[in-house]
Amino acid sequence: MTTTVSAAGLSLRYGSTHALDDVSLRLGEGVTGLLGPNGAGKTTLLRVLATALPADSGAFTVLGHDPGTTAGRQAVRRVLGYLPQTPGFHPDFTAFEFVDYVAILKELTDRGGRHREVRRVLEEVDLSDVRGKRIKKLSGGMRQRVALAAALVGDPGFLVLDEPTVGLDPEQRMRFRELIARAGEGRTVLLSTHQTEDVAMLCHRVVVMAGGTVRFDGTPAELTARAAGRVWSGTERDPAAMAGWRTGLGAFRNVGDPPPGAELVEPTLEDGYLITLDGMAAEVAA
């Protein structure tokens, strides 16, 4: 893997809380998923890498640019596309006007060229037909796509997406996944999400964070493999299991340390994620 984004020892505190605690990672081309529970530090990490927030310590580079200097920070911002967790809009803007506004913020000052770029990205997210509609009249899914279009303006090499599929219905989510997959071709995408399906469907790599630290960094298959031999099916929830639930077929799926003779089943990415988080909980308890 050719490294495009590299971070070492990133730490940041809010008061007494370690939002980031010595986070190091390397990213390459393609979509990397960032999984973790609420408060894991995902959004903080994304904000730091997007230069929205300075870390207390540590360093990182994006496509060879060091944001530690004013010039380097500008250079990072020129290759960055950022979709925040709750993108804000000027409500009276149309989709075209909003993306045009962001294009101006991205220093596209030539009117003709800028408008061509706005049309290109709106087409890329399948919003050409509603480009003249006011944002306040668009559905939640369409607004997310407007925000994604804004992030894609200028063809950035590093795309940071913070929980872009939250609040979308299954059809919108699927459509958004297609867009992210397309956006990940030839660029580095860091996708924060709560949805393990997002990671399973989109990502060639996954990073799990909890308590401000990286708990896992590998492929989705490797994360899934963590649960190998630790998922079993039964007629009831096993009280010794760290998690267990009744499936649609009526049987109980248990995750944890199986009892002797348990009927083991094929693990999923979510099982691997749960096992990873449980490992962290066990460390804290110890």
């Binding site: 904000r47 997007a50 230069t51 929205a52 500008q74 911002r77 020129r78 960055l80 950022y82 925040p84 993108p87 804000g88 809009f89 000027h90 409500p91 506004y101 962001v102 101006i104 913020l105 991205k106 220093e107 804004a150």
Partner: peptide
């Protein structure tokens, strides 16, 4: 106060100029 603050702050346009 600025609904687009988070997008604005990471934009290459210099913050002071804006």
């Amino acid at each position: 106060f600025d609904p687009t603050y988070e997008m604005t702050v990471v934009a290459p346009l210099h913050g002071f100029r804006l």
